[in-house]
């Protein structure tokens, strides 16, 4: 019995998508094989990591990650410049958490100014995220999309409860769009269909099947992503072919393992490395399951995941 490489023949591919403005625009997706398996297909673009910044000081982040941005996180413009110039970010993800009714309830007018300021301060591509408050996001993302008109940003997240408004805004101002559903492949598929039925091009869409942190439901996200990828590649299901987003940082940096002190849990080891490893390992699992675009927080975690991606291509 001699060995023959067991290659699969795939019929589908992940759609490729470019965001931002030349010469710093970034391309993701486009592969016609399962994650990193280039022996049986081509992978034209590597996964990309965007640094997360926020419109308000991140008081709720654990100290170990907050400290990384202590000198710039009071100002989204400074923060964005730091990510671009010092951390060599490939992309930046601005989360407008200050618009949440419980976090300052900032108005849509404020949002427009912040978005414009950040856009004029950096030239790497920008992802603009709401605060995950369905109703508020509808108005916030409309204002953000308008303020960023012409910059070819990714905006999000459109969810079942607000997608009509958000899609219309992305459509009007020619942005890319993240469609988010909650850990269910059928819901993800349905939302993609609803959005494309509004005349939104599937080539401009990204899927966020909802991230989870290591130890806190990671296996659900992992398997939903794997199934989405298999549907796209093996079954050539066109509704499942947009690139996948893994919004890792916001899920990781609120679990106990990232902030419990060494005196409370000595058996868990160094708090500094523990947090970084938690974010990095979560991101790695997402990549292996099919994520094309990661949103992360800790520079050391980003750097390590980048290094790992280099070893994977």
């Amino acid at each position: 019995m001699s060995y023959v490489i067991p290659k699969e023949t795939y019929s589908g591919n992940v759609l490729s998508l470019e965001f931002g403005k030349a010469p710093k625009s970034v391309k993701i997706g486009g592969e016609n094989t399962l994650p990193f398996l280039s022996f049986e297909g081509s992978i034209p673009n590597k996964p990309v990591i965007a640094y997360e910044i926020q419109d308000i000081t991140p008081d709720d982040w654990p100290d170990t990650v907050k400290a990384q941005y202590a000198f710039c996180s009071d100002n989204p413009v400074k923060w964005a410049q730091h990510c671009q110039n010092k951390l060599k970010a490939q992309a930046i993800s601005l989360r407008l958490i200050g618009t949440h009714p419980d976090r300052g309830d900032r108005s849509a007018g404020d949002v427009a100014k912040i978005v414009k300021d950040v856009l004029s301060a950096v030239d790497v591509p920008l992802i603009i995220l709401g605060s995950n408050h369905i109703e508020k996001d509808a108005s916030v993302l409309v204002a953000a999309a308008e303020a960023a008109s012409g910059y070819n940003c990714i905006i999000g997240k459109a969810q079942e409860g607000n997608y009509k408004t958000v899609v219309a805004a992305a459509l009007a101002h020619k942005h890319k769009l993240i469609a988010m559903s909650e850990l269910d492949i059928n819901l993800a598929k349905q939302l993609n269909i609803l959005i494309t039925q509004m005349g939104f091009d599937k080539e401009r869409l990204l899927t966020d099947p909802m991230c989870s942190a290591l130890g806190y439901g990671l296996e659900y996200t992992y398997s939903v992503m794997e199934r989405i990828r298999l549907a796209a590649i093996m079954q050539n299901d066109v509704t499942m072919q947009p690139p996948i987003v893994g919004d890792v940082g916001m899920y990781v940096w609120k679990v106990k393992e990232t902030f419990a002190s060494e005196s409370d849990v000595s058996q868990w080891g160094s708090i500094e490395e523990r947090g970084v490893a938690w974010e990095a390992v979560t991101a790695i699992a997402m990549l292996i399951a099919g994520t094309n675009l990661l949103i992360m927080r800790h520079p050391k975690a980003v750097e390590t995941v980048r290094k790992t991606i280099e070893e994977l291509v």
Binding site: A277, A280, V281, I284, A301, T304, K307, T308
Partner: peptide, 9 residues
């Protein structure tokens, strides 16, 4: 940390 990532794969 890098080793942790590769072990994760």
């Amino acid at each position: 940390i890098f080793e942790t990532c590769v072990a994760g794969i």
